[in-house]
Amino acid sequence: MTSTVETLRQRVNKALRSQKPETVTVLSCLLAVEDELGYVPRQAAEEVARFTGSTVNDVWGVASFYTNFRFQPPGRHRVEVCWGPSCHIRGVMPVIQRALQDLGLSGEGTTGDNAVTLRYNTCLGACANAPVISVDHRLMGRITPEQASQVLSGLKSTEEPSHGP
């Protein structure tokens, strides 16, 4: 057993024990883990099972039901592209295509070098500025494919998010 795994389990357990809601469920535990680690690794699912007195399979049943949980570590940067109706009408599809092309992805996912995680979003809540993308939780409106490409290439070279969490 390597020490990193132990730390991982320890981190998970700490997160599980310091949950705020009074009712602790498998779901609240998974959210706590996701908040702590940004994803739900196998070890975390096991710890959640122990913590809630269920089995890993129960935990997996809940975790895999919700599309918001991820099971791979996220990329260093998180890019969300809105493909809601407004953005769709205002031409987000070329932006998405360009982004996928630049990142070498075929759909939602994380680049091989773990630099960027791309997700689609149904509405980022800034329809007036459509099309909108969010880079590390910072919104960028009226974006063109070229601007998107520029932003993405900038991300590949920076190590950590340049803006808040």
């Binding site: 890993v56 399979n57 935990v59 997996w60 895999s64």
Partner: peptide
């Protein structure tokens, strides 16, 4: 357990 949901739902293990 049941895995995933809707059209993807199936039976499986963790």
């Amino acid at each position: 357990t049941f895995t995933e949901r809707a059209g993807q739902a199936l039976v499986g293990t963790s």
